[in-house]
Design a protein around this nucleic acid. Sequence first.
DNA 1: ATTTTGACGACCC
DNA 2: TGGGTCGCCAAAA
Length: 117
Amino acid sequence: MTLESSATSEERRARILAAVRAVPAGSTAGYGDIAHRAGLPGRARLVARVLAESGEADLPWHRIVRSDGKIAFPPESAAWKKQCARLRREGVEIVNGRVAMASRVAEDDLDALLWRP
DNA sequence: ATTTTGACGACCC
DNA sequence: TGGGTCGCCAAAA
């Protein structure tokens, strides 16, 4: 019994949002990573959808980027600029619309951080 | 019911 | 790096 099949869209949404909220300030996570942590492997696009519809004011949506580190919005778009600004404000280095390698190292630590009590 | 559309991702060149 | 293919899936058309 796979978790995904029994979960209602409402439950999946809640799990995804929870996973997003679990990403600490100063680090980033990929859409696919969030999906995986939410028990929904392969549902990266679902994560994107949920974020787009969430509307939650205090949701750290800006910490979610593509698996290659790039910002998922069209370059120079309002949302793109906003995400860059918010990440930088948290100390994440953004170069050419993508999380710099230096900051990505923190992602690996994040994995251990989230999976280890 | 079938097709198109995404805040995506793994792969391959 | 950068571009194109194919897989994925819930909504919208």
